[in-house]
């Protein structure tokens, strides 16, 4: 098991000097994920907070090969890079012994919405790459608008809470399940509070031949209006309420839940921790809270029933 000290001693491929907000979860997540490959990697970054705050010309925070081109296409871009790598290797134009890894990084907007087609296409083709979704449950870089990963009941600038409408009325898209249905070699969900799990999953994702998908909860203190010091704690609360289960699926079937809360907390604990759900405290909106609890329970029960490999949680 990697210790925090050992992790810290590894080289930082994303350096300080970026412009991410204080308390943003993106940076600690990447500190872990970028350390999990033993080979040099190429990053294809979708449009979003990370891309904008780390590549501000003439500076760059990246100490690796990095490309950004548009919103929604990071998986298609990485397809091209990885195919070129294979082509040059097989033609003897690139050293055979030299191994590279490929990482697409996107927000939930890109992964769930505009980039879902390119993501689905890239994993169906079987490119060897890791797709990392930093899920802050909305379009952070454009000001917090709803995405299809925004949970039901959350208020957003384009689904504001009012007397007429109590925030977003649709359920969140379950992208991890969608990726699992692609039967790709590896799909995992994790969060920064359980960093050993995150590290191990990233490591496994890089080592897995073929496509791997990592869905990581990434609180946005700026748009969620939560205290910056609470970022990591919030992700633990998400796991303890089963809002954000920590699990992995190999080859579309072998499911392991990596963290089971000793005592499952009610979703109200999660909802009360963030102003975007404040309006749900009103008694006329209680039905939404009930609905959220019901859906979370259903999803959790599904995971429990679908778990095939509970014993191998430490592998």
């Amino acid at each position: 098991m990697m210790t925090l000290k050992e992790l810290a001693e590894k080289e930082d491929l994303l350096t300080a000097g970026h412009g991410l907000c204080a308390g943003c979860a993106i940076f600690p997540i990447l500190k872990v994920v970028l350390r999990a490959s033993q080979y040099p990697m190429v990053v294809s970054n979708d449009t979003g907070c990370l891309q904008m705050t780390t590549s501000h010309f003439p500076r760059t925070s990246w100490k690796l090969n990095w490309i950004h081109s548009a919103y929604g296409n990071s998986a298609a871009i990485v397809s091209g890079i990885e195919a070129m790598y294979r082509s040059l290797k097989k033609q003897g134009k690139f050293p055979l012994e030299k191994e590279l890894k490929f990482l697409a990084i996107a927000g939930d907007g890109a992964a769930n919405d505009a980039g879902l087609g390119p993501l689905s296409g890239a994993v169906e083709r079987g490119h060897h790459f890791v797709y990392l979704c930093l899920d802050n449950q909305m379009y952070a870089s454009t000001g917090g608008q709803r995405s299809s990963a925004t949970p039901m009941g959350a208020a957003a600038p384009d689904t504001p809470a009012s007397d007429a409408l109590p925030g977003k009325m649709q359920a969140r898209k379950n992208i991890a399940r969608i990726m699992t249905a692609h039967k790709i070699p590896y799909v995992a969900q994790s969060a920064p509070w359980i960093w050993q799990d995150l590290y191990k999953k990233a490591e496994r994702a890089f080592e897995t031949p073929g496509p791997a998908y990592l869905n990581i909860l990434s609180p946005c203190p700026f748009e969620w209006k939560t205290p910056t010091r609470k970022t990591i704690e919030l992700t633990r609360l998400a796991a303890d309420t089963c809002i954000w289960p920590v699990y992995e699926v190999k080859n579309g079937t072998k499911l392991t839940i990596n963290y089971k809360p000793r005592q499952k907390l009610p979703v109200t604990r999660w909802l009360q921790s963030q102003p975007r759900f404040k309006h749900l405290e009103q008694s006329e909106n209680k039905w939404i809270v009930d609905k959220i609890q019901e859906e979370v329970d259903k999803d959790w029960d599904y995971l429990l029933s679908a778990e095939t490999e509970p014993k191998h949680r430490d592998n």
Binding site: V42, I67, S79, I81, E82, M84, S87
Partner: peptide, 23 residues
């Protein structure tokens, strides 16, 4: 190597990635 892109948008994106990878 041939990439059978799922859309024209991904096709040009894959061209960009591949070309930026130096071939």
């Amino acid at each position: 190597e041939i990439i059978n892109a799922e859309s024209a948008y991904s096709a040009i994106s894959a061209c960009i990635g591949a070309s930026a990878a130096g071939g």
